[in-house]
Amino acid sequence: MEDIKVDKVLDLKGLPCPMPVVKVSKGIKEVEVGQILEAHTSDPGALADFPAWARTSGNEIVKTETEGKITRFYIRRNK
């Protein structure tokens, strides 16, 4: 779990709703199934929105890190 191999990084800092989920849903299609997308966001709503998006789209958030106003989501493409 310590070392997550990240295949693509998405910088969504400064973007408000609904852009983070719109962009992450596009970004996840740019990695292969099983690969990890790392998304950085400063939108406080994303803490609830990303897990909701992942559950609905059938992808998995394997790790969430919050540092100050920035949250990093590590998302595995499952579908």
Partner: peptide, 11 residues
């Protein structure tokens, strides 16, 4: 439009 574009993200 926020709901509309967000809904596309939700599949």
């Amino acid at each position: 439009f926020i709901i509309g574009t967000g809904a596309v993200a939700m599949g």
